[in-house]
Design a protein around this nucleic acid. Structure first.
Lengths: 218, 218
DNA sequence: GTCTATATGGCGATAGAC
DNA sequence: GTCTATCGCCATATAGAC
């Protein structure tokens, strides 16, 4: 009983509970969509597949099938698996920036609560969060592109937290608090991915309350 | 420039900065070691390789080479890659239990600080922690055996935290506090793996202090 | 722009010699 | 108990037809 199947368990599109088959659209005739559009579609599909399988187990066939292409059709738009992967990472950066950028400029202790948007709250958050956490695992496991992306993202997250706290926290504690908040958000995200019913949002609010009490009574 | 190489980037033992080649021992003659001993050695080596590469990217060749065997020699002791993987998970469970079991029976608010042993404090903690976090990534990415192990481990961690807190915390807050502590420990572990210099231990102690203040002033 | 071959190579597992 | 083949499978990537 192999873990998945014989070889490297690609699991390509082994989705039995999915009769409409995702959307293997007719594309042959009438490919009105310009190159930019279909590239965006491919990146979207690839994000999902990478999020579900990780980099190593993702096959180009799985991505191609999801956009209704053959493998070589896909390779026409992205010359290699890595190129596609890097495009997915670029897209992910944009998403994160949009989500964090909503309230740029705000500072102070209460605005840090806004970082709760990075917790899993709805189904729409699942794919991007899952992608990030799968990539973090692969970064630890030595995937260099993933490691670069993860390291860069970690710095951004810390910067964003620090920006909102640096005028409210004693300087000698700042990095400690930043580390605590960053770690807790990350850990709560993972718990949400693995156990969706755990009270992750109350836990985050509890931490915010604890920090509030601490920092305002000093 | 492929991410690693042509196909599935095995990276087997591509360790250029490692002249002594880990320990490809002479074993041919004098195999005094009984079966149990060599199996333990294999599991140790496999833990390291799985921790470094994850399940998908680990090759039997890499494990075999590290114990000084050929691939088929290894397959004599473990009939398949999955069997070896399950043995590694069993070993990991024992390690975790030993580390947590040190102070069984203790209860109360201060004893929760002892959970700091699960943070990365020294180099020896790196392999087991890295293994856990890589497997968590693969669990999210659909590796069933990893998912089972991770889910089981998550329950154990929560139980251990809950046991130490249930007499000190208002019942309606218990699961929230447990979630917060579990998430923070996990997130701090990951930060330690990715940024070893971050103040993860002070961050953990800060959380402990915050909880202390909160729970003792109610 | 997308397809059908095809080349190339890696990996897991088995058979059989030593 | 370990080795040297070998089989079978699957993935990336390229070449060339439509």
């Amino acid at each position: 009983m192999p873990l998945r199947r014989g070889y490297h368990q690609p699991v390509i599109e082994q989705t039995p509970p999915q009769p409409p088959a995702r959307r293997p659209r007719r594309r042959s005739q009438r490919q009105i969509e310009e190159s930019a559009t279909i590239k965006a579609e491919i990146v979207t599909a690839a994000s999902e597949v990478f999020a579900e399988n990780g980099y190593a187990l993702t096959t180009l066939d799985a991505v191609a099938k999801r956009v209704g292409l053959g493998r070589t059709g896909l390779l026409h738009h992205f010359p290699s698996k890595e190129a596609l992967f890097l495009a997915v990472l670029d897209r992910e950066r944009e998403w994160a920036q949009e989500r964090a950028g909503g309230e740029t400029g705000t500072t102070g202790l209460d605005t840090i609560r806004e970082l709760g948007v990075f917790l899993g709250r709805d189904a729409a958050a699942r794919t991007p969060l899952q992608l990030v956490h799968v990539l973090e695992g692969e970064a630890i496991a030595g995937n260099e592109a993933a490691a670069r992306y993860v390291a860069e993202r970690l710095v951004k997250v810390r910067d964003e937290i620090r920006r909102r706290l640096e005028h409210e926290t004693p300087a000698e504690d700042l990095e400690t608090v930043v580390t605590l908040v960053a770690a807790t958000i990350n850990g709560l995200q993972k718990i949400w991915l693995l156990e969706p019913d755990a009270p992750t949002i109350p836990a985050f609010e509890l931490l915010m309350d604890l920090l509030d009490n601490q920092l305002t009574t000093d």
